[in-house]
Nucleic acid binder design. Structure first.
Lengths: 340, 340
DNA sequence: TAACACTGCGCAAGCGTTTGCACATATGTG
DNA sequence: CACATATGTGCAAACGCTTGCGCAGTGTTA
């Protein structure tokens, strides 16, 4: 299983000139022959193309770009490579990028300011043809980017033009109403923990729905998670220690919901008979967790695709507008009628 | 929430020459001032840098690269953006890439030959400084790439030099032995479905462990999955319809295992009392699924990090060798003693 | 005070392409 | 047969940057 060790001395790439020389023609002819320019004779074309293949010619994108061509790659920034939600988005973006013959340059952001800035600098320096930025935490680094003239679309962000997002507030309202219709009155919310527009929108939805049904939220019923499983576990421990614990828990997202259910399980509560829990996102696992998760569906692939489509429209000079997608309540087995 | 519509006409970028002209100096001076060349006076440096900032100068990577610099970005190919396993790897890779001041160019492959080829072409044309390829299905497109002189390291692939992988065969052996020690004799295997080295290695481990304990596998006990949840469900349905169904099921990976457990659940079997199931990967969800998954741990972050570290070592001219990491059995609640 | 080493900057070539233009030859028109 | 039009190819500039070298001017050393 041990292999020979090569050393990689990048021995001179073959360029268009090399081909030209070997073929006894001008570089410009080679350039045109390779892209099947109409004013090149058929035989010249085939000769050159064969020669190029034989010599292992690989065009230099840098040179091509310098000479005036587009980069044909779009930059994507997502908060976390580890979050399935963003991965689905990424996948959707890639799909349409490929359809448009573009490639992806990807980076994660929202780590710290310097890192984020570097990412956007890289975007700029590479002269990418467009960006899509996912995640609601669009910070200074983004705003400070130099390339304000490059098309960009944001996902799930509302305060800038050209975003595609789902109506998160509405989503949570739907979830809470569902809970209320099941008889729940003591409903908790476990948040993302960091203040982003996503989080405040969802929180707002929670408050709205409660109030418009004449119920109230108590301050001790809204606790912080971290967007992940651990946060959910920690949050639910806090919640269930309360003198008047909730009978239902709305979670910032599916991952927290899974954490919450785990916490509940460890504490001896059963879902949904003792307490109902609802998530947000509708990750793949939501349908297959046991119990399966009631959740708000974000059409993630669709989000990614839409964002990318919009981006290409922008790049082609079209004018597009922000789009708000309708969320959808998916009822499954993590919610049930309140026990009396 | 509706925003003004800008149109993006990329109005002339400012170049080093523009700065030079405005400052009344030569372009070369600007170039050096910007990178704080020692032979530039302090005042010139600050003047130029201020001017550049003011004019919104963004260096062109293409030009810089053409003029002889490195690309400072590495290419990563993963089979599927949607598979959590690869996401963790990606995250690990990004971590060390950032530490080395590099960025990531990412694409997914193993879709179809043409697409894969395009991805590798893009890698080549961008003159990336190195690649890391994850996934055991390294196809023709990779082998045909022109850039055989560019450092590359593979993850979980064994037939090429410079790979970092875990000993998958050994991993499955550990899992099977664990099952045997619990008294199981009728152990099934649900595979990936497509023939990759990962799949055959794991299958081999299954066979080996069984044989060396004096048990046998029956052909009808090895069925195909698809590496995902659906495949697991389908597979287990097949399995449990057998006249002599298995009492334990080894799965290609955690996602299949989750599918298998769902299928079992739907069919009225309980895990682990009726049948034990073990996964492979140790995804985050494995610890929090209910029941939590017994599985073989692949140190994913570590895999990604190691691969990237190796790559940078190669890029710096070091000679490295393939590395085989030791897997680890994580016992949790999806396995239990066989019922008599 | 002559020989020398710095210091600070400009010149110009070069990186690998693309592309407008010019030029020669071949083909068509009246 | 003289002209206009195609056709096939080459020339050279340009894209934005880096860098080796040259050349003044200003110390420093013996």
């Amino acid at each position: 299983m041990r292999k020979r060790l090569r050393t990689f001395k990048s021995h001179m790439k073959v360029s268009i000139k090399d081909i030209a020389q070997k073929a006894g023609v001008a570089p410009s002819t080679v350039s045109r022959a390779l892209k099947s320019h109409p004013r090149i004779s058929a035989e010249m074309r085939t000769t050159i193309q064969a020669l190029a293949a034989e010599m292992g010619y690989v065009p230099s994108e840098s040179a091509r770009h310098l000479a005036g061509k587009q980069t044909k790659t779009i930059g994507v920034a997502i908060p976390d490579f580890t979050d399935p939600f963003y991965m689905n988005i990424l996948s959707g973006i890639e799909e349409v990028a490929i359809a448009h013959q573009h490639e992806l340059f990807v980076g994660s952001f929202n780590q710290d300011f310097d890192r984020d800035r570097k990412l956007f600098d890289a975007f700029d320096q590479k002269r990418l043809s467009g960006f899509v930025i996912a995640g609601s935490l669009v910070d200074e680094a983004y705003l400070e980017r130099k390339s304000a003239d490059i098309p960009a679309v944001l996902i799930n962000h509302y305060e800038y033009p050209f975003s595609v997002a789902i109506d998160q507030m509405r989503g949570v309202e739907m979830a809470i109403n569902h809970l209320i219709s099941l008889g729940h009155k003591q409903i908790a919310y476990v948040s993302l923990g960091t203040t982003t527009s996503s989080d405040s929108l969802r929180y707002q939805g929670y408050i709205n729905a409660l109030e418009s049904s004449g119920f109230a939220s108590r301050p001790e019923w809204v606790v912080q998670g971290d967007g992940g499983i651990h946060g959910g576990i920690a949050a639910v421990n806090q919640l269930m220690r309360l003198p008047n614990p909730p009978t239902a828990i709305m979670c910032y997202n599916d991952r927290t919901a899974i954490g919450v259910i785990n916490g509940l399980d460890q504490a001896g509560y059963s879902v949904p008979v003792d307490v109902s829990v609802v998530g947000f996102d509708d990750l793949e696992i939501a349908a297959y967790f046991l119990p399966s998760l009631t959740t708000i569906q974000q059409p993630h692939f669709h989000l990614g695709r839409q964002a990318a489509e919009k981006l290409f429209a922008l790049m082609h000079g079209a004018t597009v507008q922000a789009e708000l997608l309708e969320p959808k309540l998916i009822r499954r087995n993590s919610t049930g009628p309140v026990q009396s």
